[in-house]
Nucleic acid binder design. Structure first.
Lengths: 117, 117
DNA sequence: GTCATATATCATTCGTGGCTGATATGTCGA
DNA sequence: TCGACATATCAGCCACGAATGATATATGAC
């Protein structure tokens, strides 16, 4: 049996705050639509803007964020910058969440604690 | 090759907003610490409060949120309510994110677009 | 060089959501 | 029935962060 103090002390893997921050990176419809657009193929910023419907500055801001976090990687080609997913395991992550959404964590859409900004 | 219009039209799986909302559920250190505490065994609210250090009302609020979303399930036992993870695939999800955090998406901690509330 | 295109940066605004403190509901023991 | 404990609910405050609009930088065409 483990005491409360021990339970408090345990720090398994990355800190909870770090995990939360990763999820916050994914917890935005704009960023998710960018990632979703990049699932199949690399795209330039202009293409991303066209596909997602985001404004140019907004898309660029989110791309900087995603890039800093390491979720996407950009490569300059001429005057275009092509972004791609930095890790294909992001696809696995998204697939897993889709499974959960379809089966167990229905009710997310009706949860009133936070909205659909 | 697919036109921009076709790319805009595609709606694969759950909507982006729904996925974002699930991630927002996970994008909070308090909720994550609750989920983390529940990874090994079901716990009462009091135990969760003791382990996470959250205030009672705060923990209860988050538990309601998690419960509504379907991430956890509560069962009344006497005057205690024992909560558990509703789906073990949440463990897989957390493990995957830990992998990503360790390898590719380092830089999350230093990303300045959002903080560590 | 100049102009057009592609992307990035920055300040401001404003809604959202997390925390707190007080109170309400519920459940058991005496 | 009364009191103690366990949990839930609610209103209010405050900070964070997403979107916008204007501007800056960079790259290529002419």
């Amino acid at each position: 049996m483990s005491s409360v103090a021990e339970l408090i002390e345990r720090t398994d893997g990355p800190t909870v705050a770090l995990r939360a921050k990763l999820f916050r990176g994914l917890a935005d419809a704009s960023r998710l639509s960018i990632l979703d657009a990049l699932r199949t193929e690399p795209l330039s910023v202009g293409e991303i803007v066209a596909i997602t419907g985001l404004s140019q500055s907004n898309a660029s801001n989110h791309l900087r964020c995603l890039s800093e976090c390491g979720l996407v990687a950009g490569e300059q080609r001429g005057r275009f910058v092509h972004y791609r997913l930095s890790d294909q395991r992001l696809n696995d992550l998204l697939l897993l969440t889709d499974e959960l959404l379809a089966e167990t964590v229905c009710g997310v859409d009706t949860c009133g604690n936070y909205g659909a900004r």
